[in-house]
Amino acid sequence: MTHKLILATESRYKIELLERLSLPFEAIAAQVDERRLEGESPAAMATRLADAKAKRLQQSHPDAFVLGADQVIALGDTIFQKPGNEERACEQLMQLQGRTHHLITAIALRPPAGAPLHAQVAFEMVMRPLTETQVRAYVHQDLPVHCAGSYRIEAAGIRLFEAARGDDFTAIIGLPLTRVWSLLEQAGYFEPS
């Protein structure tokens, strides 16, 4: 196998996840406008952004398989972005505490030839009722200011939840590896070049 694989990210979490598959790849940041389009559903937004990241890098790497991913946290129609600071993280968690929200992770694979492929994993996230003191202690410990929804479930954030319902837990961290492998197979990545 001599195909080049590029992961369109600078996220260390996504990089660490893809390393689990023992495939050679390069990670390159792909900057795209992450604002929600008017009337766009959370699921459509996740897929559009994953594809936009892959498409952006495919322009400069046309002979590579380019993988983009995006994650959207939604409570009803409200989307929670990366908070950027501790105060905003606390505000987001107080809105989510005691409620069930959806975490949608989308991936897009753009092969050198052929149509782009897409997949999506959705999780139903049931957060425990929390006090402001508990939320502030968590945020101070885990510093989830660069995480959509203001939690890191792969770290201390697991204690915020009663349940997480879905079928590929790596999607919660940011890259559903079962879907990544399937899309690579479908796109012919493992076939001799």
Rank of each mutant, 00 (worst) to 15 (best):
Q97C: 15
R110P: 03
A115P: 02
R110A: 05
C90I: 12
T100W: 14
Q92M: 14
P112F: 06
A115S: 11
R99A: 06
E87C: 02
Q95E: 15
C90W: 01
E86N: 08
G84T: 02
H102S: 15
L103T: 12
A106P: 02
T105H: 01
R110V: 14
A106I: 04
A115N: 11
I107E: 06
L103I: 08
M94H: 11
R99L: 11
P111Q: 10
I104F: 00
K82Q: 04
R88Q: 11
P111N: 11
A89R: 01
E87L: 10
N85A: 02
R99K: 14
P83W: 02
G98N: 14
A115M: 11
P112N: 05
L93S: 06
L103F: 05
R110Y: 11
A115I: 13
L96Q: 08
G114I: 06
P83G: 04
H102K: 15
M94T: 14
A108W: 07
R110K: 11
A115C: 06
G114T: 04
E87H: 06
N85C: 07
P111M: 12
T105P: 04
L93W: 08
C90V: 14
R99D: 06
A108G: 06
G114Q: 04
G84A: 00
R88K: 12
E91N: 10
A89I: 03
E87T: 12
A89M: 00
E87Q: 12
L93Y: 06
A108F: 09
G114W: 02
C90D: 03
A89G: 05
G98P: 15
H101R: 05
L103R: 07
A108R: 00
I104D: 07
L93R: 12
E91W: 08
A113S: 08
I107H: 06
H102I: 05
R110D: 00
Q92Y: 10
K82H: 07
E87A: 06
P112Q: 08
K82Y: 09
G98S: 13
G98R: 13
G98W: 15
T105D: 08
R99S: 03
